[in-house]
Design a protein around this nucleic acid. Structure first.
Length: 480
RNA sequence: GGUCCCAUCGACUAAUGGUUAGGUCACCACCCUUUCAAGGUGGCAGUACGGGUUCGAAUCCCGUUGGGAUCACCA
C-alpha cells in the first residue's frame, strides 16, 4: 500500500519554524517512499481564524521547496481539504457514535464547567468531566434530554471514555505507549456551534483520506489515546503514529511558544536561504549518519527515515544556522543572487552594473553569511564616502606613510593591465628595490582604498575597483 | 499537582552489549597569509545520579534527580 501522509496546520497564525519542520518530515517521508503528501487546513475554530494564515503556510512551504499532492488549492480525490467545508461529514460520524452509545450529549454551560473544575481542584483531584453529576444525557435521562433538544438548548457531544482499562498504541519514534482510560477526559467531539473539535475531525479525515502515517509534533502525544479510542469506536484501522521531538528555545521551552522571530517567514526576511533553512531544520531531530552536514532537498529525501528520528527535543541554535547559510552562500551560482543584491543597493540609491555586482560578490562571499551584508561590507566598492576605521588608521598610518605612498603612486598609475598579477609584480619589485617591508605599503593602501581592516586580498580588491578609482582615492587622501 | 514523554561535550548529533565515546557549530591555539575571512592542524569539552543484569553497559532493567509536553465547547 502506498504511503499517504498529511501536514495539517490550523490557520490560527503564520507558520512557525516547528510547523515547517513537521511539514518537511511529512514531505520527506512521502517522497522517500514514493507516496503522497497532502495539506489539510484544520480551521474548525472559527474564533481563532487569522487572515492570511493559510496563504502564508502555502507560501512558505512552496518557498521551502515543498509541493503538496493534494491541498485546498489543488484539490484531490479526497477533498475538500479545509475542515470548515466538511462539517456535515463530522456531524454524520458523530451521530454514528451517538447511536452506538460511544458518545453522548452534554448541556453544561461554561460556568457550570468552571464550577466543576473548582470543586475538583479544591478536593485535590484531577480535573475531569464527570458525566454522572453534570448535565449529561446520563443524569438528565432520555425524556429531559429530548425536551432540551426540542427546546433548542445548546449542547456538545462528548466521547464516552471507559472508566478504566489500558489504552495502548505504538509510536514509531517512541515505541509502545500505555495510558489508563481513567486518566482520560470525556473529550468534546462536537462543539455547540456545530463544528467538530480537532480530535474528531482529524480522526475522521485521516481515515477518509486514507492516511497511513500520522507524523506530528510531540505536543499531540497526550491526546493520542483519545484518537485511538475513536478509531476503535468506529472500528477503523489506525494509521501509524510518529510523534516528533519538539524544537526548543535556548531555555529548552517549546519554541512555538515564543512568538515573532520564530515565524518561518521572518527567517526568510532575515535573509536565510530556503535550502539552508531546510537543511538545518531537517537535521534537528533527525540524522542519517552525522559524518555530513550539507544535504540538498533531493538528498534529504533519499536518506530520510523515521526510525532515525530522535526522541529528545532539539534546541534551535542560530549560530549553526548562520554557518550553514554561509556554506550555501559560497556554493551558490552568484548570478542567482545579483538581483537581490541590486535591490539592497538600489535602496541606497546606488546604481551599478550587474557584472560589477557579481565581481564584488565573488570577491567577498567567503567573508559574509548573508546576501544583504554585501552593500555594507563592501561599501567602498559602491561609494566614495565610506568610513575610515580610526583604529586601523592609528595603527598603520605612520609618519612615513605619506612619503611611501607618494613614491609608489606613479607606479600604480603607470600599470596598463590593472590586474591582481600585474599589481603584485609591480608591488614586489617596488618593495625589493626600496628594500621596505610590503606591509608598510599594503596596510596604508588598504586603509586609503577601503577604510577597513577587513576585506578580500588587496590586489584583487584594487583590480575590481579599477585603476582610476584607486589613483583618485590615493591622491585625495594625500591631499587631505 | 495528575498523566505522558525525554536525558551523550555549551548546542546539533554518531556509536542499535565490546570504540582511546566519533563528527559538526561555537570557543581556544598554531599553521598558511597581504588585513579579515576561508582553509589546514591540534585543543577544550560529554554518556545526569544510584542500583542492578552481564565476562563486558552510553546502550538492557529498576529507582532518583532534572527537563519538557499536556490537562479548553484551541489546534
Amino acid at each position: 500500500m502506498s504511503v499517504r501522509v498529511r501536514f495539517a496546520p490550523s490557520p490560527t497564525g503564520y507558520l512557525h519554524i516547528g510547523g515547517l519542520r513537521t511539514a518537511l518530515y511529512n514531505y520527506l517521508f512521502a517522497r522517500h517512499h514514493g507516496g503522497e503528501c497532502l495539506l489539510r487546513i484544520e480551521d474548525t475554530d472559527q474564533t481563532r481564524f487569522v487572515e492570511g494564515a493559510e496563504e502564508n503556510i502555502v507560501d512558505i512551504c512552496r518557498w521551502a521547496g515543498m509541493e503538496f499532492d493534494e491541498s485546498p488549492e489543488h484539490g484531490g480525490p479526497f477533498g475538500p481539504y479545509r475542515q470548515s467545508e466538511r462539517t456535515e461529514l463530522y456531524r454524520y460520524y458523530a451521530n454514528i457514535l451517538l447511536e452506538a452509545h460511544m458518545a453522548y450529549r452534554a448541556f453544561d454551560t461554561s460556568e457550570e464547567l468552571d464550577a466543576m473544575r473548582d470543586r475538583q481542584k479544591n478536593a485535590g483531584i484531577a480535573a475531569k468531566y464527570d458525566r454522572t453529576v453534570m448535565r449529561s444525557e446520563y443524569t438528565l435521562g432520555a425524556q429531559e434530554t429530548q425536551r432540551l433538544l426540542d427546546g433548542g438548548e445548546d449542547y456538545c457531544i462528548r466521547l464516552k471514555v471507559p472508566a478504566s482499562g489500558d489504552i495502548r498504541f505504538s509510536d514509531i519514534v517512541r515505541g509502545e505507549i500505555t495510558v489508563n482510560a481513567r486518566d482520560i477526559d470525556d473529550q468534546i467531539l462536537m462543539k455547540s456551534d456545530g463544528f467538530p473539535t480537532y480530535h474528531l475531525a482529524n480522526v475522521v479525515d485521516d481515515h477518509l483520506m486514507k492516511i497511513t502515517h500520522v507524523i506530528r509534533g510531540e505536543e499531540w502525544l497526550p491526546s493520542t489515546p483519545k484518537h485511538v479510542l475513536l478509531y476503535k469506536a468506529f472500528n477503523w484501522d489506525m494509521p501509524q503514529f510518529a510523534h516528533l521531538p519538539l524544537l526548543l528555545n535556548q531555555d529548552k521551552s517549546k519554541m512555538s511558544k515564543r512568538f515573532g522571530d520564530v515565524l518561518a517567514k521572518s527567517f526568510r526576511e532575515k535573509g536565510y536561504f530556503a535550502d539552508a533553512l531546510v537543511n538545518f531544520v531537517a537535521l534537528l531531530g533527525w540524522n542519517p549518519t552525522s559524518d555530513r552536514e550539507i544535504f540538498s532537498l533531493p538528498e534529504l529525501i533519499e536518506s530520510f527515515s523515521l526510525d532515525k528520528v530522535n526522541k529528545a527535543g532539539a534546541v534551535f541554535d542560530t549560530k549553526k544556522l548562520d554557518w550553514m547559510n554561509s556554506q550555501y552562500l559560497r556554493e551558490k551560482d552568484p548570478s542567482a543572487y545579483i538581483n537581490s543584491i541590486q535591490q539592497f543597493l538600489q535602496k541606497q540609491n546606488i546604481l551599478v552594473e550587474d557584472s560589477y555586482v557579481e565581481r564584488v560578490f565573488v570577491l567577498i562571499k567567503e567573508r559574509i553569511s548573508f546576501i544583504h551584508e554585501v552593500p555594507h561590507f563592501a561599501d567602498y566598492m559602491f561609494t566614495d564616502s565610506y568610513a575610515i576605521d580610526e583604529e586601523y588608521k592609528a595603527k598603520h598610518w605612520t609618519s612615513e606613510s605619506p612619503e611611501i605612498i607618494e613614491k609608489i603612486l606613479p607606479f600604480i598609475s603607470s600599470i596598463q593591465d590593472f590586474t591582481h598579477d600585474t599589481i603584485n609584480t609591480m608591488m614586489s619589485d617596488f618593495t625589493k628595490e626600496q628594500s621596505i617591508q610590503s606591509k608598510l605599503i599594503i596596510h596604508p593602501l588598504r586603509l586609503i582604498l577601503t577604510g577597513k581592516p577587513v576585506g578580500a586580498g588587496l590586489y584583487d580588491t584594487m583590480e575590481v575597483l579599477g585603476k582610476q578609482k584607486c589613483v583618485q582615492r590615493i591622491q585625495n587622501f594625500l591631499n587631505n
